[in-house]
Design a protein around this nucleic acid. Sequence first.
DNA 1: GCATGTCAAGTTGTG
DNA 2: CACAACTTGACATGC
Length: 314
Amino acid sequence: MDREAAVIRWGLCCQFLDSPIKFRTATHRYVASLRSRVARRYLADISRHNAQALIQAVERCHQLGIGAFRITSQILPLATHPESGYTLEQLDPSGEVEATLHLVADLADQLDVRLSFHPDQFVVLNSERETVVRSAVQELELQAGIAEMIGADVIVLHAGGMGGGTSAALERLERGLPLLSSTARERLALENDDRCFTPRDLLPLCERTGVPLVYDVHHHRCLADGLTVEEATARSSATWGDREPYAHLSSPRDGWSSSNTRAHADYIDPADFPDAWLGRTMTVDVEAKAKERAVLAVMASVGHPEQSEGWRSK
DNA sequence: GCATGTCAAGTTGTG
DNA sequence: CACAACTTGACATGC
């Protein structure tokens, strides 16, 4: 009978610092200045480049012992833009990009690199404005489609705005869930943020709907709710059922006693790694500006806590 | 080559 | 009321 040892799966967010792997982006203003055939070729180039970069990213993570990778929302830049937008079929009629994305799925599976998405702040499923909700659904569906192709099992979303108060906002969020396809809905996870929604706010919704909670301990420390880190860890982990729980870790750039504790530091201060996470099996995305260097550093320091004395990011 | 100004989107909180 | 802060670069352009 083999029983897997409890272990943290460390995750890198979106980009590399030292490794020569770059994801390209595009701006609407520039694309709009091109003739349509040129624009399509330009965007097709970028999507081919980014799909290849994703293969390299998965390989590089594996080489470094990094077990998770968050994919940039710009992987297919402007895909959902009202004017410059496109479908993968239009952009890539030969299916080359799609074939590469299927290779990513095989590779990530083989190398055991967990892939996720994290739509950015413009994606607000609980907005009071209908048009905003519609574009949020559109963006989530796009990312879900890519997620399905590459085998990403998580799309992490902030709960959104607070218009009308916390309970009204949470109700709107819950009403937004059925607007999603099963592909998107099955991958959706919510994250506590540092301004509006705490774990205590979100856990009941997560427990009731089956949408798991990604526990961001830095946000929780910025916006406390009476739950201890231990309690929030246990309850959020439980929302993942049989799946591996997901959490976020970062350190404040200017320290915990500064006026701005929200900005992220280059590295993780080992003191910020919660004791409650020791001995757990979970994925921890490292949100730090020094990217893979920071992931490797925190892996080493948590693995050898006796050596972390006096260790500082700056 | 290198510096510069600009970039789709929402929401909150500060000045 | 206007604007920065979030994830923060990366891009094309102009010198």
